[in-house]
Design a protein around this nucleic acid. Structure first.
Length: 271
DNA sequence: CAGTGGGCCTGAGTGC
DNA sequence: TGCACTCAGGCCCACT
């Protein structure tokens, strides 16, 4: 489940290698979440001059234009000079002068979208509503507090929604709330300044550490150079229902919020 | 208007 | 062994 750390680790694993390369061809396989938005051959000859990230989107800066990539839930990228023939779940091969960027995504929740510019059309629709970047200076404590104050739903739901802060998926929402000592069901608007500050710091800390560990490999995530992540070994609560809380040794609880599993410690995380 | 829940997908896991 | 069923979850969108 690629969340922000996995997407960032993926970005770092091929950004340097592809920067400066020229698109040789683009092959699209089965339909993904949205259509590409242009004819694949239109991209031939364009130079890739940067690989950026916004939330869980990877943004390939072309000259001219942008290629937006989203890994959905089961997507992963590979970048190599030689790849085997594409399999049934390989939905994109971006062949460049430096190597081929391949998207593999069994569940096809991912997306590859071309946009002339980021501030119009489909790109604006996808990126326009995104919240603050948690690992950048953009993640301002007072704006975070303001954003939470305006929301009456459960804090975990607000984190997942991504319009206050981006990139915090189910795993890292559970972990950050544990680290901050906040019950996932607590209404966001009821968090006081001290707990908001703790949560702000916890989100940064959890995500930064996950990036440093190469992300979480729950099923089969790996970065574009094939490296698996290791953060899942350090998870305090996620996926550990019934096991001892690392802080107080009481059993970790599991509940459903929306359609999602929430893991928490009823002792360490206060409503 | 904010909030909630459905649907998209397929592979792994479970129970009979 | 094999089949039917459930679950995993990011994100858009229809609905309340």
């Amino acid at each position: 489940m690629p969340e922000l750390p996995e997407v960032e680790v993926t970005r770092r694993s091929f950004a340097q290698a592809i920067t400066g390369a020229t698109v040789v061809s683009l092959r699209m396989g089965q339909a993904l979440r949205w259509p590409l938005g242009c004819a694949p051959q239109e991209l031939v000859g364009r130079r890739v001059h940067d690989v950026q990230r916004r939330g869980k989107y990877l943004l390939l800066a072309l000259q001219p234009g942008w290629l937006l990539l989203h890994l959905g839930m089961s997507g992963s990228l590979r970048f190599a000079s030689a790849l085997p023939a594409p399999g049934p779940h390989d939905h994109m091969d971006l062949v460049t002068s430096a190597g081929t960027l391949r998207l593999n995504d069994p569940r096809r929740f991912g997306a590859v979208v071309y946009a002339d510019r980021l501030d119009a059309g489909m790109a604006l629709k996808l990126l326009g509503g995104l919240g603050m970047e948690p690992l950048s200076d953009d993640f301002d404590l007072s704006r975070f507090a303001q954003g939470l104050k305006a929301r009456r739903s459960a804090i975990k739901t607000v984190l997942l929604a991504g319009d206050v802060v981006v990139g915090v998926g189910n795993i890292y929402a559970c972990e950050a709330l544990f680290q901050a000592g906040i019950r996932p069901t607590t209404r966001a608007s009821r968090l006081g300044p001290v707990r908001v500050q703790r949560l702000h710091a916890a989100i940064r800390a959890v995500l930064a550490r996950a990036v440093a560990r190469g992300g979480s490999t729950l099923r089969d995530f790996s970065s574009a150079d094939g490296q698996a992540g290791h953060f899942q070994r350090e998870a305090a609560v996620y996926g550990r229902a019934g096991q001892a809380c690392p802080r107080c040794a009481k059993p970790i609880q599991l509940l459903r919020q929306g359609q999602r599993s929430t893991y928490f410690c009823a002792t360490c995380q206060r409503p």
